[in-house]
Design a protein around this nucleic acid. Structure first.
Lengths: 342, 342
DNA sequence: ATACCTTATGCAAACGTTTGCGTAAACCGA
DNA sequence: TCGGTTTACGCAAACGTTTGCATAAGGTAT
């Protein structure tokens, strides 16, 4: 038998005034005398009154909730982004509803549905790996729910988004290897329909071309970027008639896999093989040698995306032109790519 | 100018029937003829109707939302637990509101407030490190909102909770070191008012006593368990007249810090010093040597806690007796503690 | 034809707020 | 004394559902 929670009406009755007066008093409305305001606030506290956001949201048409869809919430990157999102949202008085798509576009569709049922005022989403079309997002747009993508976006779908300058990341990583004297640089890439992997690769190729180094096809290996993939990729590279002297990987995980293979085979890092990863995962400081990597400022991405969303929500009138925020990556140089004295 | 979302009333009007009929039709109520049900469902789909959970929740008194408070959502442990929570909750048709206390009891209090305002039907919480009293949780109880704690609980506060058998974890870790022939085993512990650290230590001491090995005070070092703390702790231990030959740490992070110090000083792991950590962090497989660690089944803890909460919510009548679920930890043996052939 | 049951639907209240509009009382200057 | 303004509050509708109760139509047994 759940106790009835005390409502604004209870306060009104006990004080012999109307609910509207109570509502305004609690809302700090100017047209209420100080005297009654004090009485109301006092009684509210005494009764342990808790406003009912559902009711308020219903009436106002504003739920004060934001929706987030991530492929999965565990793992370094997304958990940090979500941390940033939650922080920024709660600072603005918003709650955050979190859904996981599990890298599955069907789930993603469901998530959108349930978020809209929950009456969120805006949605932040990073695409599932299997998402290749955007009909479900168009449905959201039709209902005028503001939408902001982050990190993983769909090529050719013009929407507001916060992304990393992945091309710059790839370029700087590769450029750093070149500066260290590496000349035959391989690349581990991810699924190319995802912007992030496509641009990281592009940065890699741009850096090579800039130095008139040909981009040779068998030095680029596309995979899902797990540790195993990195190990397999490295074996493949080492079996080449002319193996590379460095690898720029679009993920730290595959670098770790590769590193293990190199240790087994007695290939020295960074002397015989330079390595640069991507994401600056926690563990990149813990391997032997420590990994050079590109930092994505995950938490910042979360707060930036949230702020952009809140902005768009405010100017609901003209959301014709999608807006973009591009974050600059940072290169953290560590032992795995330091062949020359720094 | 946000388009008016289509409501149940719109459907009723267009079909010339009453809202109640529409509501029942969509709810699959038996007393509605197949014919009208079909018409309603068809039109609903055509109009892109989305039920408004706020309204339904208000009327029913059930928001279909759960609240979660974690110290922080990034990091391996909590992000995995939250993953488990979200999965279990959404399977049961619940949404999850996530708050971070930032290890601060004041935030924790605020979080409770806002979650209750949001009308969550139950709350899952893992304590902030600075929480030493439970008045704010008593307030929640008074309002009859079911509460389930996980992992970090307050000693002497009898509530429903899902916890790891930390004593068993500490015991098994230490016992493993003993089995490997280590005899002078040190311990890195965390804040002792938190159950988890207290019991891990207890398990450590139990294992020693069982073998009639005295527990010597200067071999236990209490800290915040960061990497730096581990490094400092190891230096302190090595400066002892009789340094230990192994360390059981209640956190993987401090082990990593310690490991770096050992490498600098040329102390060999596991020959001269055995190491066992706690949490089985991702990186424990990536250090050199790999770290033996205790696995906490983080995701399982999340689903277990959620299931317990849902159960308690169902039996709102007699929630007098708090219920407990205790998860058994697993020992993952790796190179850092393997002095003898396995 | 009457009484009664079943089936399918409608009426209206309720959930707890917010808010536009109306109004009584008090005050003010002339 | 009066018209006008200000101040402080109340009325009632509205947000979009759900649901207990009433009711109309149709059927069946008597």
């Amino acid at each position: 038998m759940a106790k009835k929670r005390t409502s604004i009406t209870d306060i009104a009755n006990q004080l012999g005034i109307s609910v509207s007066t109570v509502s305004r008093a609690l809302g700090g409305h100017s047209a209420i005398s100080d005297a009654t305001t004090k009485r109301v606030v006092a009684l509210a506290k005494a009764l342990g009154y808790q406003p009912n956001n559902l009711a308020a949201g219903l009436r106002r048409g504003r739920s004060k909730m934001l929706g987030v869809i991530v492929p999965h919430i565990d793992g370094n990157f997304f958990s940090q982004v979500v941390k940033g999102i939650e922080a920024a949202a709660s600072k603005a008085g918003y709650h955050v509803l979190i859904c996981q798509s599990n890298e599955d576009v069907a789930h993603e569709r469901e998530n959108l549905e349930t978020l809209m049922n929950a009456q969120v005022e805006g949605i932040l989403v990073s695409l599932a790996r299997t998402t290749r079309e955007f009909q479900h997002f168009e449905d959201v747009r039709k209902r005028d729910v503001p939408l902001v993508f982050f990190d993983r976006i769909l090529e050719g779908y013009d929407v507001s988004a916060v992304v990393l300058d992945d091309r710059a990341g790839g370029y700087r990583a590769t450029r750093h290897l070149l500066d260290q004297g590496y000349r035959r640089i391989a690349h581990f890439g991810g699924p190319q329909h995802l912007n992030i992997y496509k641009y990281r690769r592009q940065g890699y190729e741009d850096a090579l071309r800039e130095q008139n180094i040909p981009v040779v096809e068998e030095l680029t290996i596309i995979s899902d970027m797990k540790m195993e993939d990195g190990a397999a990729g490295m074996k493949q590279l080492l079996a080449l008639p002319q193996p590379p002297d460095a690898v720029f990987s679009a993920s730290d995980f595959s670098v770790v896999g590769a590193l293990e293979v190199l240790k087994e085979r007695g290939v020295r890092v960074p002397q015989d093989m330079g390595l640069v990863g991507f994401s600056n995962e926690l563990f990149s400081r813990l391997t032997e040698p420590k990994l050079t990597s590109i930092d994505q400022h995950c938490e910042l991405m979360g707060t930036a995306a949230t702020r952009l969303l809140l902005q768009i929500m405010e100017e609901q009138d003209q959301h014709f032109t999608p807006r973009h925020v591009v974050l600059q990556p940072d290169l953290f140089v560590r032992a795995s790519s330091l062949r020359q004295a720094p």
